[in-house]
Design a protein around this nucleic acid. Structure first.
Lengths: 318, 318
DNA sequence: TCTAGTGAAGAGCAATTGCTCATTGCCGGG
DNA sequence: CCCGGCAATGAGCAATTGCTCTTCACTAGA
């Protein structure tokens, strides 16, 4: 009843205005009449109710938690794109959610009339994502591979993904006909001097959007499991501090791309760190959390598509 | 994953849109871009989130409960004005809250440039309300009494209220220089035939706003306590079913104005039932609940200013 | 396979809203 | 008592929003 009286009454009015506006659905004009103030004042009162947190919003939907996580991750790591897929209790823990999300992200980009260059990394998730893309005709875009697609044994599984995508969207594609890792640094450098490879790398460097998988670097590292690097090579990278890799480029927990080891003999397009164009990482799962975390911290990626549980764990890592 | 898939995904999008709009504060244009839909669709999604109750609002303020009660009372009794004052735990249970509210209501009406006729009933609450009104010059309005202000003993307390109000707002006032109840019906009718009284009643009947107290009709009835009616008269009215009175007019639990008893000898301006102009009742307290309830049910009043506890009890009565 | 019905999507407009700026009224200091 | 500074207020405008109408695509049935 002392000094707080006038401001108390103003907050009361703000609460009334907020109630009338959000809960009763009145227009600000109607509120102004009911509270006997001018329309601008009614607007100010509604604003006040919002800024004073008298009115709060609640979203009763599983998406709510995801949106919250997206906002926090975006804020913390300065992301340009972030999508968190709900931890669907009815579905198994397969990549189905983020594959669809990645597919729809890619589709969205490809539907644009403006010609763009889309760079594609590696990974099972990406493969699953491409399978979700519907047929659409967008020959104006170009698709380029960020990583060699010839394994030691000559398999070409990654090429299949790029080719498959190209087939679905009828866009020209630029595969990289190189092994991921060369036997020596010199041989790698020699390859990179070849004119077609140089042009490919220039194109890839100018990619408007890159979609990359994020690989772990423990004993389940896809690079090792799929036979691109040997067990001793993996061990060496881990000694150097590797926690994950993007298109073969191994990095440590801080997200610094390592010098030495297989990174010296890698043919993959160099990462632009911190990423200037949009580079979206697609990955999920407890085993990949440290890898994703590193990629985020080092700004190797500035976009992320993952699922709810992974996102929570990432935020818990701090 | 069957038929619910498309509509599920639409609700998901609605939830996303709602989150982006209300929680993140995006414009619908921004939402449209983020969800890759057209602006109208984004608007539809936000609407959907609202209509499907995905988004709910919460008001963190004591006023919230009052607004809710106001809405329910307005709905149930078709009120044209309703104000519920918070049950203030810091203040005593005096009339302070509703007196201020009534004063501000009256002040609001008087501040209008358009000349109006304001009719005033009786009651301690009204008296307290008038004391809260600041000085303001509005000689364009007219103030009229709905009830005689001469008690059996010749006291003129109610006249004081009207005079006080008139003094504060500098508006002409029309008191009713009659006893509230005449000894006989004939004498009452004789009084009512007097030209000045007739004119007064015409003015009162045309009042744009009436502010009336609501009296109980039990042993604490103000009519009896203040000496306007005798104990046997009170008892007779109670036999007839009286639960309350407005400007002396006693009514039963259904809000029907009683025929007979003191009502036959009353000089007060007749009530227009159901009320056509704005008639605001001002009352609170457990003891008055039945009286207020009756007045509401019978549409003797179409406006109410009371406090939170009283409002709750009224709604519990059904 | 064709056609009518149904529902959703996009153009366009009117209403609502948020905000800027000039003005008013109030309070503390000389 | 008068004056400068400050906060609140109302006018007016640009942006946003809600909605209507038309068009389009899809679906079910003949």
């Amino acid at each position: 009843m002392t000094a707080s009286d006038p401001e108390r009454s103003r907050l009361d009015d703000a609460a009334r205005a907020g109630w009338l506006y959000f809960i009763a659905g009145n227009t600000q004009d109607a509120i102004a009449k009911k509270l006997n103030v001018s329309r601008p004042t009614a607007q100010r009162l509604v604003s006040l109710a919002l800024s004073e947190r008298l009115i709060t919003f609640r979203l009763d939907h599983p998406i709510a938690a995801c949106m919250e996580l997206e906002a926090r991750l975006t804020e913390r790591y300065g992301l340009h794109h972030c999508q968190i897929v709900p931890a669907d209790p009815t579905a198994d823990s397969s990549v189905v959610g983020i594959a669809e999300a990645s597919a729809s992200f890619l589709e969205q980009r490809l539907r644009g009339a403006e010609p763009i260059v889309v760079a594609i990394g590696t990974g099972r998730t990406l493969r699953a994502a491409v399978e979700q893309i519907p047929r659409l005709a967008c020959p104006q875009h170009r698709l380029v591979s960020l990583v060699g697609h010839i394994s030691m044994e000559g398999s070409a599984s990654f090429f299949d993904v790029l080719a498959r995508l190209s087939d679905l969207v009828q866009a020209p594609h630029y595969p990289m006909p190189l092994p991921v890792v060369m036997p020596s640094r010199d041989e790698r450098d020699q390859m990179l001097r070849l004119a077609p490879v140089r042009r490919l790398r220039e194109l890839a460097a100018a990619a408007d959007v890159s979609l990359v998988g994020i690989g772990r670097m423990d004993e389940h590292a896809p690079l090792y499991v799929d036979g691109f690097i040997s067990k001793p090579e993996l061990a060496e990278m881990r000694r150097l501090g590797a926690v994950g890799e993007v298109t073969g480029w191994a990095f440590d927990a801080q997200g610094r791309i390592l010098v030495g080891g297989t990174n010296e003999r890698l043919t993959s397009v160099p990462r632009d760190v911190p990423a200037t164009r949009l580079v979206v990482g697609v990955a999920m799962g407890t085993g990949k959390v440290l890898a994703i975390h590193g990629a985020l911290r080092g700004r190797i990626i500035n976009g992320l598509i993952t699922n709810e549980t992974t996102a929570k764990t990432l935020l818990d890592l701090g």
